[in-house]
């Protein structure tokens, strides 16, 4: 009986000290499942609370998180465009086209190294027009998420550097595209 009384005291002490420790600042940062969902949904309002680039960096550092993010994307995306099978590895394709959306780019004639990436969605969602779509490009090794401005008359465009890995991935045949 006395042993058990001591056990209860120990339990109280443990719970109390662990609770205090648990709420101390951590030297690490961690993302929870909801952060992945918000990023996959392209929820721009959420970005005041999470930094999408930091979340994406963490996703890219963990195979488990990449798989998890991919599965959320697959469940929630507006449209999908697979790898372009016929293309050679490392070569840029000029455009991607599916029944739901089209992606192409035009070189800026005035500024070298700058490209306009144009996204066309014939039947955009309300969120695409109000907030803007996100283009997620995914390979086995790395994922990118690119937010586009709100769509006007089914079109949105983004000025990017032609050496930007996110641009290269969108037009890399080995990447899949999830539009959210």
């Amino acid at each position: 009986m006395l042993d058990n009384v001591n056990k209860v005291k120990e339990q109280l002490f443990s719970a109390n000290t662990l609770y205090t420790e648990l709420h101390q600042p951590s030297s690490e940062t961690k993302i929870v499942f909801n952060d992945l969902v918000q990023l996959a949904k392209g929820n721009r309002q959420a970005w005041t609370r999470i930094n999408p680039q930091q979340v994406m960096e963490q996703i890219n550092q963990s195979l488990l998180l990449r798989r998890q993010y991919m599965s959320v994307l697959q469940a929630l995306c507006f449209a999908y465009n697979p790898q372009q099978a016929a293309a050679s590895s490392g070569l840029l394709i000029n455009s991607r086209k599916s029944s739901e959306f089209e992606l192409l780019y035009k070189v800026d004639k005035n500024f070298s190294g700058q490209v306009y990436v144009i996204l066309k969605v014939p039947h955009p969602s309300q969120a695409h027009m109000d907030i803007g779509p996100s283009v997620n490009s995914c390979s086995e090794q790395v994922l990118y998420s690119v937010p586009f401005p709100p769509m006007v008359e089914g079109k949105s465009q983004l000025l990017m550097d032609d050496s930007d890995q996110r641009f290269l991935s969108i037009f890399d045949a080995n990447f899949e595209i999830y539009l959210s």
Partner: peptide, 15 residues
């Protein structure tokens, strides 16, 4: 540290 960070993020994660 990971569990502490998890609880801190549960308080921050956006809805």
């Amino acid at each position: 540290e990971s569990l502490k960070a998890l609880f801190a993020q549960l308080k921050e994660t956006p809805g």
